[in-house]
Design a protein around this nucleic acid. Sequence first.
DNA 1: GGGCCTCATGTATGCGCATTCATCATACAT
DNA 2: ATGTATGATGAATGCGCATACATGAGGCCC
Lengths: 343, 343
Amino acid sequence: MHIPDGGEPKSRRGRGVTMQDVGRMAGVSQVTVSRALSDPAKVSPDTLRRITQAIEATGFVPNALAGALASRRSGLVTALVPSITNIIYASMVQAFGLRMRDAGYQILLSETGLTLEAEEETLARHLSRRPDAVLLTGIHHTARTRRMLLASGIPVVEVWDFTETPIDACVGFDHAATGRAVGDLAADLGHVQAATVCAGDERAKRRMAGFATQFTRRGGQAVLELGYDDQASLAGGRAALARLLDEMGFDRGLVFCSSDILAHGVLIEAQARGLRVPQDIAVVGFGDQEFSDATNPPISTVHVDREAFGRAAAEALLSGIEGRRDGPAAIDLGFRILRRGSA
Amino acid sequence: MHIPDGGEPKSRRGRGVTMQDVGRMAGVSQVTVSRALSDPAKVSPDTLRRITQAIEATGFVPNALAGALASRRSGLVTALVPSITNIIYASMVQAFGLRMRDAGYQILLSETGLTLEAEEETLARHLSRRPDAVLLTGIHHTARTRRMLLASGIPVVEVWDFTETPIDACVGFDHAATGRAVGDLAADLGHVQAATVCAGDERAKRRMAGFATQFTRRGGQAVLELGYDDQASLAGGRAALARLLDEMGFDRGLVFCSSDILAHGVLIEAQARGLRVPQDIAVVGFGDQEFSDATNPPISTVHVDREAFGRAAAEALLSGIEGRRDGPAAIDLGFRILRRGSA
DNA sequence: GGGCCTCATGTATGCGCATTCATCATACAT
DNA sequence: ATGTATGATGAATGCGCATACATGAGGCCC
């Protein structure tokens, strides 16, 4: 008996069960399988049962690539953050992802580093996947980034900073204002000397600048400013205070750091030197990290609700996708100064 | 003059420039545009120039969904980790992502939480995107997870744990062995009492168990074991030591924590109580986090090269994708005990 | 000068699904 | 009995691209 190569008619060489296959097994057409999956109420109970069995038997997994191509909806949402190892961004993206997942979307997450050019290139790669929406970090982008976004016609949300004129939507807070608020605190506490320790991006610099401006405006001495390009670290904070004390003539006063981890380093270095915190050295951080209220003394800091940013960003995009939003949206979620033991 | 609705022939309603459009503008067919993009050497220099111009003029962005469907290669790689806000996993995934990106892949990252069921469900969603490879955290998975993976026929790497019999490939280390090594250290240092503080998954428990086994085998007293389900935190570490001292009869000795953050909490609590570290209380952490060598005293810990795991996992998948790998691979990257000031 | 290769390009096809429109049965109202 | 709504299904189509195969022009050899 001759066995034709290929076996059954229209045998499919490539691995992978299709709706066609499931349908054949269930005695219905491909469309009906599609309907059973997207809206079970549209098929009769009996048919639905046979299809479900066939799916179970074959181990069918729908091909979302094909579905996305046909429906022009990918179910993908792009999220671009400077770094995923920075808890600030990680927790924001986590909250964002949870909300988007509940809405049926998957997150295509990438790091962009610190340059706008890297962001642009990464975005281009992402857009080829035809995401249904985009989350970007910050409000500064290259011209081509803006052009691509506008051309794509999908909802965009810029987070972790604030502008009245976003590309589409914006969820964040005013960085300079946080610095000014800490400057006021320093002045209120009667400090005469102050310093800033900054290890971060342009937004961190704006916080430091806001602090310096307000502190001197309130009568403080010129602020000693220390910045470096490394990632923020405990060791960096320790080294910074050492340098402030040993080389820059800093004597006593308040140190405003661009992150809590730096502030913690300053705290440790001060204590290692036998200085009293906050009497000799007061320190204020930024970010209200998880550890900040458990140090000894606890670290005074600027609290921003990162999870709230993520959730609000998700809502902004979802309302944009569903056409519920009529125009741009700019949401300032603000911040809180948390005065604890270190200042 | 009558203008037919639709304008040009075959006008495309949906937004979006296609290769067809680019080709028309450049005076070539769609295939030639495709070739120009995937292998520029295949088209003549003159044609290439015209196509490049047309792409520039139209702002064409290739549709990777269609490309993936046609080529049966998505260029996507799934990465499933328990949590992205845990620096342990974040830094591993970061290194993994960098390597995969260089190889032309994009990462589809999701959190699975702590249950295998959640992992299974997330994996199913991911597989519908037809990833070219999968990274999973841990070596324990549901039966259906294994079945789906096997059926998909793509390379799989399990990281952050070790087994001789992986689904496909495995890159990690022996958790129990790290605990035993710390148990040896405690015994070598002459400790008689010891305790463990554990806040984590099943792997953390295995580390603690390894410690307890080895410490008692070496002559130590029965190990006091403290575990809780919250995420590891400084506050948790402080509370743990407080409980050990106040309620469990722990007097002096070595405390092995499932993470450096807990160890740091123990350190802070000990110092807040006026206890000397390491003379009264010695503490050992796990993970060698960035801050661990900058505390005072610096924290002794178990170092594992997370970035190396990420890179090795990427290599394992890439070799699998390219068919360079003939069979399963199990790589034990080991660990190092870092003895610093706290023990 | 006919065969044969190479290079550049085009035609045809289908990836697996969602969508639109058509079909057919049944139920119900007039 | 005729018309009309409703529900369940199928046939046809195309999303935008990659791939296999076909074509034609030019160059080279004996």
